[in-house]
Design a protein around this nucleic acid. Sequence first.
DNA 1: CAATTTCCGCTTTTT
DNA 2: GCGGAAATTG
Length: 1023
Amino acid sequence: MEASLLAGLNPAQRAAVTSKVPVLQVLAPPGSGKTKTLTSRVAHLLAHRDYNPQNVICCTFTIKASREMRERLRALVGEQLESKLILGTFHSVCRRYLAAYGTKIGIAKGFGIADSSDSKSIVKRIIKEHDIKLEPQTARSKISWNKARFRTVASLEAELAKSKEPAQSKQDMITVFREYEDELKNNNLLDYDDLLLRCVDLLRAQPTCVANVEALLIDEFQDTNIVQYELMKLFASARNHITIVGDPDQSIYGFRSAEIENLKRMQAYYRDAVVINLEENYRSGGAILKLAQDVIDQDTARPDKKLKSTHCHGALPVLRRLPNSFEEGLWIASEVKRIIASTGGLIGHADIAVLIRSGYLSSRVEKAFTNAGIPYRMVGGTRFFDRAEIRLIVDYLRTISHPDNNAAFLAIINVPSRKIGEKAIESLAKLSEEHKLPIFRVVQKVLAGSLVPEKKLSKPSEQDLSRLISIINKARDKMEDMQPAQVPSRLIEYVVEVLHLQAYLQKKYKDDYEDRIENVQELIAYASDMTVMSTTETLPTVEGIAQEQIDQCQEALDQFLANIVLSSEVEQDDKDDPKPRVTISTIHSAKGLEWPVVFIPSVYDGSIPHSRAEDTDEERRLLYVAITRAQALLNISFPLIGSRDQGLNAHDLTPFLPESLHYRTANKAPLFTDSIIADIARILRRETPSPADIAQGVTSISNSESLEDDRWPLDGRPALGPEQDIMTGGWIVGAGRLQPADSSFQSTQGIASYQTTMTSSRSFSTSNTSMNAGFTTAGQQMRSINTMHQGHTLQDSPAPPAPATNAPRGIQSFFSRRPSAAEAARQAWSARPSQSAPVSASKGGGRSGTQPQSLSQSVSNLPTMPSISDRHGTSDPQQLLPHLSNHRLPAFNAMGRAAAPGRVLTGQTGSVGVKRPRPLPLEELSPNRSKRVYHFLSSSPTQELFDENGEVTIGTKEDFDTAMKVGKQNTPSCGTNSHPGGSTKDSGTERGGPALQRPPVDPRKRQLGVRGSFVPWNERKRK
DNA sequence: CAATTTCCGCTTTTT
DNA sequence: GCGGAAATTG
Ligand SMILES: Nc1ncnc2c1ncn2[C@@H]1O[C@H](COP(=O)(O)OP(=O)(O)OP(=O)(O)O)[C@@H](O)[C@H]1O
C-alpha cells in the first residue's frame, strides 16, 4: 500500500507526502502535482501514520476542488475512511462547526445563510430607508471588504472618531454596515463572511471544539484571506500540524480579499515551517509551458521561477484572430469538431474545455455548440439556483425551515400573488419593528386580530395570507414525520403541489414554462440526491464539549439549504448522464483542473485584463492560470470587433500577449498530422490511435467542413464562401450575408466613404470624410473593413490577401500531407454512403463551382408579403411609424453577427427567444415565417419598417428620427443611392420604386463601430 | 392599491 | 437579454 501510494511520485513529492515536520508548505508551479501531493499526504497520514480521519481537517476553496479531493481520496483510502474526514470548503467546514456548537457563542439554532442576493436586498432596503447616496453593490462589497479584515462596525467608528475630518460618506457607510449587521442578527442569518468570522469567535471561545484535530491540510493556500488564516491557526491549535500547498503565481482571488502575504506570515509565525518546492510540470506540453512562462515573467515584481517541462514540446499554442465574437464561437465549435474527428478517438468531448474570463462570454460559445450539436456543460455561469422559479421554492423552504427569516418570508409573501402590495408590506414591517417580532409572527397576530396594521388588509388578501401561514405550519408538521434524507425533496413536492406551481408557472411564463417546470423537476432530483452528503457533514464528538442536540429532519433541511447557498451549481449527475461533454467554465472555477484541450476565447484588452479590474497583475495571473490548464492543445482566440453590445468597437489583443511573444504561438490551429497526434498521445499518456482509427474518425467530417483550420482568413477578416446556416437552422439566401464589392457602387454618388487611418501600431480609427446624407453600401462597408484589417496587422507573418482559394483544401490537403494515413483515409472516404462532390466543389459557393444566388434573385424568390402600407392605407412614414414593432428582431438575433449599419441581409423572421409582447407581431405580417430582406441603419434593431416589397429597414428610434429629418430636407431620389446598402440595384426601381423612402442614416453615426451615441462598455463607467 | 407594461441601464471573478 | 424602476392600467 505504502509503495503503491508513493509509486507515482517523484522524490520531492514523496518527501512532502511522508514528511514528519509539523508545519509544511509545499510551494510549486502549476501542474507540478501539488494537489496530488496533498491528497497522497492525507492518504499517507491515514494509512501509515494512524491518523484518525475524524481528526483530520482538509480545506479547499471551491466546492469543485473539495469534491475532486474527496473522489481522489476515496480511490486512495476507500470510502470508509474518506467519508469520516472533515473535508470541504472553509465556509462549509465553518458552517458545520457553527451548527454543532454555535449556541455556545450565542448563535441561535437553525441559523440561515444569507446569500448574495439576500445581502443585496438587505443593503438596498437600508440605503433606501436612510436615503443614502451609495450604490448597493459598492456598499455590499465594502462591507465584505471590512469583514474579511476583521473590521467591525465598532472599529470603523473608532477610526472615524480619530480622524480629523469626519466625512459624511464614511458615516453613511458605517450606518449601512451597522444596520446590515443588525438585520442579519434579527433574522438569524449569517452571511459568507460571518460563517468564517463567527467560527473564529467560536474557536477562540471554545478551543475544545477542535481539541481532537491532529492535522490540518489546506489546498490553494495563496487564496486565503486573513480571517481564513486565523482559522487555520485555530483549527490546528491542538497539535499545530499543518500542511498547505499553494502557488503565489496562481493567486486570483484578491478581489475576495485573499492575501498572498499569508504565505510569509505563516512562515514567520511558525518558525519551524519547512518549505518544499516541486519543480517538474507533469501536465502540459513544452510549448504551452514556454508561453505560460513568458506571460507570467512579465510580472517584474515576481521572483524568477522556471517551469520545467517533463513532456515533449508538442503543438504550438494557437493565437487565432477572428472577425467578431460570434464567428469566434463558430470557430471554436468547428475546431472542437475537427479535433475530435481528426484524432482517431484520442480526444473526446470531455477532454475539452472553454475557459472564459466572464460568465456572459459563454453565450456565444453555447449557441455555437448547440447549433453544431456539441454537448457541453456550463459551470458557474448563470446559476441554476438564481433562476426565479428555483429561488421561489427555495425561499419557501427557507421559510419553512425558519419562519422568522424575514428575508425569505418577504420573498414569498406575495408570490404567487396574494394582493399584498408595497403598502401592505410596509405596514406589516412597521408592526414588526414596533413589536420586535418577525414578520411571520406579525402576520399570524394580525390574522388572529391581536394586532392591527395601519393599512387594513383586504378580505381576499387576508384569506390568502392565512392559507400561506397554514401551508408553512403544515409543512413544518409534516417534516417531523419524514425520513430525514427525504425531507428536502418531499417538502419541495409539497410546496409545488399546494401552490399549484405548475399552473402558476404556466400562466406566468407563457413562452418558456416548460423549461421552468423542468428546472423544478431538476431541483427535486437534486434534493433526492441529498442522502449522500449528510453523513460526510457530521462532526466527530469531542470529549469535554457537547454538540447541539440536533433534530435530524431540521438538520437535513438546513444542510440542504446551506449547500444551495454555498454551492453555486448543480452537480452534473454522472450516472444519469454519462454523455461526455465539453466544459465551458470561467477561469476562476477552472483553477486546479486540467484538460487535454483548452480554448481561451476573447483575450482582448478589456476582457483580460478586465476593464474594471484594479489589479493588472492579478489579471495576468488569471491568464496564466488559464494557459496552464492545458495539457496538449491550447487555443487562444480573440475577436477583432466586439459584438453589438460593445458597440462594434475594435478590440485590441490583451497586452499580456504582446507581439514579442507571438513567436511562441501559431496563427492557426494545427493540422493533425501523425506526429502531432503522437505528441498529444504522449503528453496525455494515452495510446496513439492507429491509422485506421484516424481514418475512421475522418469520415465523420462532412463535405462542407475542412480538415484544416482554414475556414477563416488568418488576419481576422470574415469568412467568405457559403453562408453558414448554423444560426437560422437551414437557410439564408445565397450570398445575402455580405454583399461583395459591386461595380455598380463605383458610380454611386453621395455615398459616405470611409478612410482608415492608422493611429498607432495597435489601434486604428475610421474617420468619415463625407458628410453627405446617403447610404453606405454593403460593398463599401466591406471594403472599409478590408482596408482596416490590412492596416491592422497584428502578427509578423504575412496574412494571405484572400482566403486561400487555390491552396489545397480539406481532405485534399489531408491526403497530400498525411501520406501514412492517406491510403486508409481515402478508402474510408470512398466508402462513404453519400459520396457526393468533393469538398472543394460542394457547398463551396462563390469560391468554386456553384454561383451564389444573387440577392436580386433571392428577393424575387421571396413570397409576396402583405404590405404595411396596404394594411394602413398610407405610405407616409410618419403615419406608419407608430405601427412599427418595437422588439428585438428575431432574425437579427439569429443572424447575430452580420448586422451593421449599411449592411443588407436576407433572413428569416421567427421567434428566437423574444419574450416581450410586440406591438406589431411579426407573425401577423409574415404568418409563414417568411424570408425577408433586412436593411440595417444601425446594429441595434429596435424598430423595423416594412415596405411594400416585404423588405425591412431596421434601426433605433433615433436612427429613424434622424432619417426622417434628413429625408424631409433632402428627399432622396428613388435611385440606388437612396437605398441603404443599395447593393440590390433592383430592389426599388425594378419593382416600381419604393413607396417608402428608406430613411437615410446620419453619416456620422455610420462610422464603423460607432453607433449613435453609444459608448462602449469598457469606456462607460470607469469611475 | 395592486398588477401590468414599458423603459432604461448595465454585465468580473466566488463562497 | 434581464432586473429594476417608472409609468400606466385595472
Ligand atoms: N510524479 C508524477 N508523475 C506523473 N504525473 C504526475 C506526477 N505528479 C503529478 N502528476 C500529474 O500532473 C498533473 C497535475 O497534477 P496536480 O493537479 O496535482 O498539479 P497541481 O500542482 O495541483 O496543479 P495546479 O497548481 O494547476 O492546481 C496531474 O495530471 C497529475 O496526475
